[in-house]
Design a binder for these strands. Structure first.
Lengths: 216, 216
DNA sequence: CTGCACGCCGATCTTGACCTCCACGATGTT
DNA sequence: AACATCGTGGAGGTCAAGATCGGCGTGCAG
C-alpha cells in the first residue's frame, strides 16, 4: 500500500543517488545542471524548488546556500544560454568574409543551439517569465544583439539606412529561430544540416541582391 | 503627499467607474475587454483576478459568475486572437493568385495584427503560459496553420517535397512575426507599410526563385 | 404600500510555493 | 579511541492569489 519504490518520480526523471558530500564548486555545477533540466522540462512557474533539490539528490536548504532565490538561479542559467547563442552568432559572422558563407554558418549555429542536448534554448525562446523585466531584457537582448551584428554587415555592404538594416537583420534572426524550433519539434523528417542549409539558402536568396554594393 | 486621486492605479490604467448593474451579455463582453487589457499589459501569471475585476469596475464574484476560472477566461481571449491572425492569413493568401502579391498581402496582415490597438497578439506571440498544454497547442497551431497554408502554395508552385515546403513556410512566418514584433517595439522609425513592404521584399526575393515552376 | 427576486459586494478559506529552524551523522584532531 | 565541528535533512512559517459565502440595494408585481 505504500509507494512501491521511492526512487521513481512521477515524471520518470530519476533523482541522482543520495550520495554523500561533495566539494562546493562541484556541487554548484551539479545544482545548475539539475535546475536546467527541471526548468527546461517544466518551465519556470511549474518548476518547484523542491523538484530541483530532489533532482540533484539534496535537500532544499543546500540549494539556498548556493543561490539566494529561484529567480537568481533561473537568471544564471538564462545568462549562460544567452551568451551561448550570442557568442556563437558572433563567431559565425567572424568566421569568414563571404556573406553567403556567413549566412550558412550563422544558420548552422542556430540549428545547433536548438538541437543541443540540454534544451537550454527553451529558456530563451520559450520562457514563461517574460513578465519579469530582468528576463524580458535578456531574452530581447539575444535577438537584438544577434540582429545588430548582422545589421552591421548589411549596412556596410549595402548602404541601407540603419533602421532598414536592423529590421532586415531581425527578420533573418526570426526566420532562423522559428524555423529551427519547428524543425526540432517536427521530429527528424529532415536532417539538421539539410534543414539549416535549406533555410540558409532562403535567407541568402532574400538578402543577397540588396540595393547596392559596389564590392563585386 | 498621499496619493492624489484614488482613481489612479499604479500602472496608469484607470478602472471604469463603479457603475451600476448591467445586462448579463453586455457585462460579459466588458469583462472580456478588461481581461484582455490586463493580460496584455501584465501577462498571465502577473495578472490577478482582482486586477481584472477592478479594471472592469466590478468585484471578483461577478467575474466568477461569468467564467469558471482564470484559465477559461484566458483561453477564450487566446482563441479569439488566434482566429484573427489565422483568418487574416487565409484571406490574404486567397486575395490574389500572384505570389508576389500574396507575400506582400500576408506580411501586411502580420503587421496589422501586431499593430492593432488592443495588443492581443501578445497572447499568441508572447504568452507566458506555454507550459499549459491547452495554451501551447493553440499558440503552436497559429504558426502551423499559417505555415501549412503557405506551404500548400509553395508545394504546388515549386514541386518541393512536403517537409521542405513546410519548413520554408515556417521560416517565412517566423520572419513575419519576429520582425513585426520588433518593428513595433522599436518605435516608429519606419512606417508600418514601409516595414511590411521591406520584409515582404526580402521574403519574396528569397522564395521566388525556387527550384521550379513551369508557370512562367 | 409591501413583499419578492436578482444581481452585486465585502470578507473569508484554502492551496501551494518560496523560504528557514532543530536533530543527526561523518570527519579531523589529540 | 573519544570528542568537537560542520554540513545535511525533515518539518514548519509566511504570504500571495485563486475561489467562494452571507448581507444589501434596487426595481417590479400585486
Amino acid at each position: 500500500m505504500t509507494a512501491g519504490s521511492p526512487d521513481t518520480t512521477p515524471d520518470g526523471a530519476l533523482p541522482r543517488p543520495r550520495g554523500g558530500r561533495m566539494p562546493r564548486r562541484e556541487r554548484r555545477v551539479q545544482l545548475l545542471e539539475s535546475a536546467l533540466e527541471v526548468f527546461v522540462a517544466q518551465g519556470y512557474h511549474a518548476a518547484a524548488m523542491d523538484d530541483i533539490a530532489e533532482r540533484a539528490g539534496v535537500s532544499k536548504p543546500v540549494l539556498y546556500q548556493h543561490f539566494p532565490g529561484k529567480l537568481d538561479l533561473y537568471l544564471a542559467l538564462l545568462d549562460a544560454s544567452c551568451d551561448t547563442i550570442i557568442d556563437g552568432c558572433r563567431e559565425a559572422l567572424a568566421s569568414t568574409t563571404d556573406n553567403k558563407d556567413r549566412v550558412a554558418a550563422t544558420m548552422k549555429v542556430f540549428y545547433s543551439y536548438v538541437a543541443s542536448e540540454e534544451g537550454a534554448f527553451r529558456l530563451v525562446f520559450e520562457s514563461d517569465l517574460t513578465s519579469e523585466p530582468d528576463v524580458r531584457e535578456r531574452v530581447d537582448r539575444v535577438t537584438i544583439e544577434c540582429a545588430s551584428m548582422i545589421a552591421d554587415v548589411i549596412r556596410t555592404d549595402t548602404g541601407l539606412p540603419d533602421e532598414a538594416s536592423e529590421l532586415l537583420a531581425v527578420s533573418l534572426v526570426g526566420m532562423a529561430q522559428v524555423s529551427a524550433r519547428f524543425w526540432l519539434a517536427g521530429g527528424g523528417g529532415i536532417t539538421q544540416d539539410d534543414a539549416a542549409a535549406l533555410i540558409a539558402g532562403l535567407a541568402w536568396r532574400g538578402i543577397r541582391g540588396y540595393p547596392m554594393t559596389d564590392d563585386h
